[in-house]
């Protein structure tokens, strides 16, 4: 159901889901690597991060 986030303009690579059993440490490491690669390909999160409010 996370399609809405992408629908409202968030890049597909910002949200990941996976399923790793507690015995699958190799799979865990691979998933971490894969996700890190994907996120590095994006710029840093600007659109959804709240910046400090401007005080005049």
């Amino acid at each position: 159901m996370k399609n809405l986030l992408e629908h409202t303009g968030i890049e597909p690579g910002r949200l990941h889901f996976s399923w790793v059993s507690s015995a699958e440490s190799t799979k865990f490491v691979e998933v971490v690597k894969k996700i890190t690669e994907e996120v590095k390909a994006l710029n840093s999160n600007k659109a959804y991060a709240k910046t400090k409010p401007k005080v005049d």
Binding site: I10, R14, L15, V20, N45, A49
Partner: peptide, 17 residues
């Protein structure tokens, strides 16, 4: 949780079961 994380500056969120 996901939106609060992104709002506070995380670059991505990963949920894993």
């Amino acid at each position: 949780f996901i939106l609060a994380g992104l709002r506070q500056g995380a670059d991505a969120v990963w949920v894993s079961g």
